[in-house]
Computed example of a mutant assay.
Amino acid sequence: MGTWFTEKQTDHFGITAKVNRSLHSEKTDFQDLEILETEEWGNMLVLDDMVMTTERDEFVYHEMLAHVPLFTHPSPKKVLVVGGGDGGVIREVLKHSSVEKAVLVEIDGKVIEYSKKYLPTIAGALDDERVEVKVTDGFMHIAKSEREYDVIMVDSTEPVGPAVSLFSRGFYEGISKALKEDGIFVAQTDNPWFKADLMKQVHADVKETFPITKVYTANIPTYPSGLWTFTMGSNIYHPLQVSDERFFEIDTKYYTEEIHKACFALPKFVKDLTKE
Rank of each mutant, 00 (worst) to 15 (best):
M1G: 08
G2S: 14
T3P: 14
W4I: 05
F5N: 03
F5V: 00
T6D: 03
T10P: 09
F13P: 08
G14E: 15
T16P: 04
N20T: 12
R21H: 05
R21P: 03
S22V: 01
H24G: 11
E26G: 05
E26R: 05
T28F: 10
Q31G: 08
E34C: 11
E37N: 09
E39H: 06
E39I: 04
E40Q: 07
E40N: 07
W41V: 03
L47G: 05
L47H: 06
M50C: 14
D57T: 08
H62M: 10
H62A: 09
M64W: 11
A66F: 04
H73A: 12
H73N: 06
K77E: 09
V79R: 05
G87M: 04
R91A: 10
R91Q: 06
R91W: 07
L94T: 09
L94A: 13
L104K: 01
G109A: 13
A125R: 02
L126G: 04
E148P: 02
D150C: 04
M153I: 11
S156G: 10
T157Y: 14
E158Y: 09
F167N: 06
R169M: 04
E173I: 15
A178Y: 04
L179K: 12
K180G: 13
G183N: 12
F185A: 00
V186E: 01
D190V: 12
F194S: 15
K195C: 14
V202R: 01
H203Q: 09
H203M: 05
A204Y: 13
T213M: 01
K214E: 02
V215N: 05
Y216H: 12
S225M: 15
W228P: 01
L240H: 07
Q241F: 15
D244K: 15
E245H: 13
R246E: 13
F248I: 11
Y255C: 07
A262K: 10
A262W: 05
A262E: 06
K275S: 06
K275V: 07
